[in-house]
């Protein structure tokens, strides 16, 4: 598996936390397969010019959470076979929702207007996905 992390140093979220969240999200979304290998600590540190200890810390935390396991000779592999439970997925979505809610308040939108915007965005994404798969199906 080729996870590409998005590492943003100048935010309030520590880098180890960014890595943990991104792997957890990928697993919850089902975009990884059990047995998929995480890139090595050294490769991640080298790629993003970050401290290898930070990557180790993130991987150890993912291991403690049961999301990955250490396999001899392979490094870290994705463990969870079943897609994450609904409440886990919702918990992962919560920070993004909280942010969107705060912004809609700042903009003075009503609850209905904010919900409509969310529905529109989902509809747009669904339409996009449909066109993409339709194109793929064409010979």
């Amino acid at each position: 598996m080729n996870i590409l992390f998005v590492i943003e140093p100048s935010t309030a979220t520590p880098i180890y936390r960014q890595i943990v969240d991104q792997v957890a999200r990928a697993v919850a979304a089902g975009s990884t397969q059990p047995g998929d290998e995480l890139p090595s600590v050294r490769a991640v540190a080298e790629r993003y010019a970050i401290n290898p200890m930070t990557v180790s810390k993130a991987y150890s935390l993912l291991e403690a959470q049961g999301i990955v396991e250490r396999r001899r000779g392979m490094g870290m592999v994705i463990r969870a076979a079943a897609p994450a439970a609904m409440d886990t997925r919702l918990a992962l979505l919560k920070p993004a929702i909280d942010h969107a809610v705060a912004v809609s308040r700042q903009l003075g939108l009503t609850d209905e207007e904010a919900l409509a915007a969310m529905r529109d965005a989902l509809a747009e994404l669904n339409a996009h996905d449909t066109t993409k798969s339709a194109k793929k199906d064409r010979p």
Binding site: S10, I15, Y48, A49, N51, M53
Partner: peptide, 10 residues
């Protein structure tokens, strides 16, 4: 350069 420090500092 705080971004550099943030990348590597423990």
């Amino acid at each position: 350069l705080l971004e550099d420090i943030e990348r590597v500092a423990t």
